[in-house]
Structures are given as C-alpha cells and as structure tokens.
C-alpha cells in the first residue's frame, strides 16, 4: 500500500467536526468515491471523532489518500492520548457504552468501512485506523 497524500487535523472542539467531515468528503470526492461509500466513510469518521472528543478531550486525525493494487482509498487514523480502553472486545460490542450513549459508535463504524483496526493502552491513549476503498470493497 502506498500513501499518495497525507495531512493532519487537530480535533479539540465540537465545532472542529464539521470542517473535518468536509475535508474527508473532499478527499473522497477527489478519488471518485460513490456517494453511498462517501456517506458510510464520513459517518464512521463522525462516530470516531466524537469518541475522541468525548473520552479523550480530542486528539488528531491523519488523513491519507492511499493506493493498493491500483485501487485508491482513504485512510484515516484517529490518535488520542486519553484514558485508553481497558477491554477492547467489550467496547466493540453493539450496545456497550460507558457514556450513556447507544453504544453503536465503535461497532457501527467498523461495519461501515472496509478495514478497521484499534489499538489502545490504558492511560496512554487509543489509535483507531480505518480504510475505505473507492469502490467500497
């Protein structure tokens, strides 16, 4: 997999979410991603960025256009330095939440994108990486 472009956005306030979503849409449009796949990617990104704000007081997102076997895609890496997740399998369950929400954020985001990876260390932070390919497969 090769990285074609790369930039970083800091997410510290709720209002940062709107320009961030727009930036993801811009990149997805640039590689010719269909509207349905764009919507899935941005919705997943929106869930993950909310988690970052809610549980870690923000963080940064690395946005990349990547290419593998001639197919373009968008890779987003959400990096925070929050409390971390103690039990990742539990956090990935539908309906589990420590914050009185619906508990759909992490598992829902995973369902919406092609590739999903989560790494977390208690008291150090969490990194979630997602990739969505241009044709959604």
């Amino acid at each position: 997999m090769i990285s074609l472009t790369k930039d970083t956005m800091q997410i510290v306030r709720e209002q940062d979410v709107v320009p961030f979503r727009n930036r993801v849409r811009e990149l997805a449009t640039k590689i010719g991603m269909s509207l349905v796949n764009q919507t899935k990617l941005i919705t997943a990104a929106s869930e993950l960025v909310r988690n970052m704000l809610k549980y870690a007081d923000g963080g940064k997102v690395v946005l990349e256009v990547v290419s593998k076997n001639g197919q373009a895609g968008i890779r987003l890496m959400f990096v925070d330095e929050g409390a971390g997740i103690e039990n990742i399998p539990q956090a990935m369950q539908d309906g589990f939440s420590t914050g009185r929400s619906l508990g759909l954020g992490l598992p829902g985001a995973k369902r919406l994108v092609n590739e999903f990876d989560i790494k977390s260390k208690v008291n150090e932070g969490t990194t979630v990486t997602i990739i969505h390919w241009k044709n959604g497969r």
Partner: peptide, 10 residues
C-alpha cells in the same frame, strides 16, 4: 445514502 448508512450502522 443516509438510509443505507443508518441501517448498516445499526
């Protein structure tokens, strides 16, 4: 596209 996404989200 929003409807499709909502259902997949759960």
């Amino acid at each position: 596209a929003v409807a499709i996404t909502l259902v997949e989200l759960g």
